[in-house]
C-alpha cells in the first residue's frame, strides 16, 4: 500500500519501497526533439529503451551524435530549455518526465553527474572543498561535519592529502585530480545513480586507467552507474550491461561481455572490429566504412543500412524494431540471427 503511494512521488524521496525487482531507472521509449540552429526540429533521441537495475553499471556507447549524452542529460533533467521530450523515465517507478518532478530533490541526492572536462565543470573561483561540500552545506549540516565529510569524500576519490588540498582552487589540481574532485562532488549527496559522461576522454591515458579503477571501486560500493562513452575499451572495463546507440536509436543491448564478444548487430560488430589490438602488429583494425549517420540526416529504414555489409532492400524500407534475439540480448537488426551465428 505504502509502496504505491510513495512510488508516485517523483522526487523519489518517499519511494524507499518500490516493488521488488523494479529497476532503479527504466528508460521507456524516450524521445528527445531539439531545434537545430536553422529552427528545424531534429529528433536526436528516437524511442530509446533500457533499464538500469540497482547496483549495476550500464554503458551507453555510440559515436558523437548518437544521442548518448542527450539521453544522460534527460535522466538528470538538464536538457536545453528548447528540448521537447516523450516517453517515460521511470525512477524507482515514478516518471521523471512529468512536470511535477521536483528536480532539486532528485539532482545530487538521487542522481548525480560527472562531466567530460573536469576543469570546465568546476567553478574556477571557488575552492575544491567548498564545491564538494556544497550539497551538504545547503542541506544545513554543521560546518565541522561538512568539513569532515568533504575530507572523507576526497579521500575516497583518491585525492591525496585532502585536508590541505580542499583549500585549493581547480586550476591548482592536475587533470586527473580534478576528475577525482568531480567524482567526490558527485558522491557528496549520496546518490543511487551516477551519470558519467565521457569521464576519461579529456584525460591522459595513464590517468584514464586510474580513474576507471576508481569508478570500478565506487561501483563495488553498490552505486549504479550510467557510463556514457564512445570508447569501447572504457565500456568493456567498467560496464555490466551495454546499450549501443546509433543515430539516436538503440542498435543493440545486453550483457557487456556477451555483446562485445558476440555482437547481435552489424554496427556493434563493426565497432568492435575498429578497435585496434594493442599487442599484435598483424591485426590492423578495420575502420568503419562510410560516415556516421546523424539524427538530422537519418537514412530511411535501418539508419545503419548505408554502412552495413548485410544491408538488403528490407533494411532501406523498414525500421527494425528491437527484438529479444537471445535471452537478455536485444537487437534492432532484421537479420540479427545471421549476425549472431556467422
Amino acid at each position: 500500500m505504502g509502496g504505491r503511494v510513495t512510488a508516485q512521488r517523483p522526487d523519489g524521496t518517499g519511494a524507499v519501497n518500490p516493488p521488488p525487482g523494479t529497476p532503479l531507472l527504466q528508460v521507456e521509449d524516450l524521445v528527445i526533439d531539439l531545434p537545430d540552429p536553422q529552427g528545424d526540429v531534429v529528433r536526436v533521441v528516437d524511442g530509446v529503451s533500457f533499464d538500469v537495475p540497482a547496483g549495476t553499471t550500464v554503458g551507453l556507447i555510440g559515436e558523437s551524435g548518437s544521442g548518448k549524452t542527450m539521453t544522460a542529460l534527460a535522466v538528470i533533467g538538464l536538457l536545453p530549455d528548447r528540448a521537447a521530450t516523450g516517453g517515460r523515465l521511470l525512477w524507482r517507478g515514478a516518471d521523471l518526465l512529468r512536470p511535477e518532478t521536483d528536480w532539486r530533490r532528485v539532482r545530487g541526492h538521487q542522481i548525480s553527474m560527472i562531466f567530460q572536462d573536469p576543469l570546465a565543470a568546476l567553478n574556477p573561483s571557488l575552492t575544491i572543498g567548498r564545491q564538494v561540500g556544497e550539497i551538504l552545506r545547503r542541506a544545513g549540516r554543521p560546518r565541522a561535519e561538512v568539513r569532515r565529510a568533504v575530507i572523507d569524500l576526497l579521500d575516497r576519490a583518491g585525492v591525496p592529502d585532502p585536508e590541505r588540498r580542499m583549500g585549493d582552487y581547480p586550476y591548482e589540481f592536475s587533470g586527473g585530480l580534478r576528475q577525482r574532485a568531480m567524482i567526490a562532488l558527485a558522491l557528496a549527496g549520496n546518490p543511487a545513480l551516477l551519470l558519467a559522461d565521457e569521464p576519461t576522454t579529456a584525460l591522459d591515458v595513464t590517468v584514464q586507467a586510474r580513474i576507471l579503477r576508481l569508478l570500478r571501486s565506487i561501483q563495488q560500493e553498490g552505486l549504479s552507474m550510467l557510463l556514457v562513452s564512445h570508447d569501447l575499451r572504457v565500456i568493456a572495463h567498467v560496464a555490466d550491461q551495454v546499450v549501443v546507440m546509433y543515430a539516436g536509436r538503440v542498435a543493440e543491448r545486453g550483457p557487456a561481455a556477451e555483446v562485445l564478444r558476440r555482437p547481435a548487430h552489424p554496427y556493434t560488430r563493426a565497432l568492435v572490429a575498429s578497435v585496434p589490438a594493442v599487442r599484435t602488429r598483424t591485426a590492423l583494425a578495420d575502420p568503419l566504412p562510410g560516415t556516421p549517420a546523424t539524427p538530422a540526416h537519418r537514412p530511411s529504414g535501418c539508419a545503419f543500412h548505408p554502412r552495413c555489409p548485410l544491408a538488403r532492400d528490407r533494411c532501406r524500407a523498414e525500421v527494425p524494431p528491437a527484438r529479444e534475439v537471445a535471452p537478455g540480448r536485444w537487437s534492432a537488426c532484421h537479420f540479427a540471427e545471421e549476425v549472431l551465428t556467422p
Binding site: 530533490r105 548525480s112 558527485a186
Partner: peptide, 22 residues
C-alpha cells in the same frame, strides 16, 4: 553558459542559487 553552471544545477541547486552562488 559555462559547464560549471551545469554542474551546480546537477547538485540540485535552484536557479537562484546557481545564479548567485556560482
Amino acid at each position: 553558459r559555462e559547464p560549471y553552471v551545469q554542474t551546480a544545477r546537477s547538485k540540485g541547486l535552484s536557479e537562484r542559487q546557481v545564479l548567485l552562488g556560482h
